[in-house]
């Protein structure tokens, strides 16, 4: 009984620590001025939210751009990463370790190491300053997660199901649609979630390739924070974390610790 007591205290402290940094952001977004040493604002107001949701702040526009980039990056990563994951998960071949190493490399070699070079390459290709270039750049940190998660998913997939379906009269696309896709769907959903989040959180690559013209939410958040607009920063921060919270709340069961490939970017 006593150990249970300590568990609950430990868990409560952990929960508190996890929530704590979000608290001042939420308070700031509703504060009508909040000076030191007031523990809470003397007056409350929705003006930060009004401003954040109005056209001049550019927040909503940023939100759509960020969502669009993350969705497009996820779709491309799935298109490219699912076949690669299949090859790595189902087959052994010469040079497989090398391929795996290359796939993991972007997760361990920081973006700052490739940002200057990538900027130069994209400049030549005319890909800087637009969302297209940013989406391509976001593929670099997203693909490793897509490929590695799908490799783990396919490693547990038995292709006899595909052969059986084929023999029962399914054409190749029908096999994919009715057998393979349903079998890998939970893993694919997890992989897509992580790909989306990695793109969604990306800062430096957007800055490097977007040349300041692609204002995603993190860039906008930083410019308001740097300008000392704590109230608007708080509102943007909450808008920014909302989709992730929603997705986890809706898919909590699929993304439990049970999945071996639980590997979103740190």
């Amino acid at each position: 009984m006593r150990s249970n007591h300590w568990q609950i205290i430990g868990a409560a402290l952990l929960a508190l620590a996890l929530i704590l940094p979000m608290v001042p952001l939420a308070i700031w977004s509703l504060a009508h001025g909040w000076r030191f040493p007031d523990l809470l604002p003397r007056a409350w107001s929705l003006k930060a939210w009004d401003y954040a949701l109005s056209a001049p702040s550019g927040v909503l526009q940023s939100l759509w751009i960020t969502i669009w980039i993350a969705l497009a990056t996820t779709a491309l990563a799935a298109l490219v990463g699912v076949p690669a994951g299949r090859a790595l998960g189902l087959h052994d071949f010469r040079g497989k370790r090398l391929v795996l190493l290359l796939m993991i490399a972007p997760a361990l070699i920081p973006a700052i190491a490739i940002a200057p070079g990538l900027h130069g390459v994209f400049l030549r290709l005319g890909l800087t300053g637009g969302t297209g270039g940013v989406i391509l750049a976001h593929l670099i940190p997203t693909l490793p997660y897509m490929v590695l998660i799908m490799a783990a998913v396919f490693a547990r997939f038995d292709t006899v199901h595909e052969d059986q379906a084929r023999s029962l009269g399914a054409a190749p696309w029908q096999v994919w649609r009715h057998v393979t896709l349903p079998a890998i769907a939970p893993g694919l959903l997890t992989a897509c979630l992580f790909a989306f989040l990695v793109s969604w959180s990306q800062y430096l690559l957007t800055l490097a390739v977007g040349s300041g013209r692609v204002q995603t939410l993190p860039l906008l958040l930083y410019s308001f924070a740097a300008a000392g607009r704590n109230d608007v920063t708080g509102a943007i921060a909450l808008i920014y974390i909302l989709p992730g919270v929603l997705v986890v709340a809706l898919t909590a069961r699929q993304v439990t610790g049970r999945h071996p490939a639980l590997m979103a970017g740190p």
Partner: peptide, 20 residues
Amino acid sequence: LFQINLTIPHVVGAVGILYL
């Protein structure tokens, strides 16, 4: 909460810690 935290971008955490 662990899973929620996984989805919160670092930049938000940094500003939250700053204000804290």
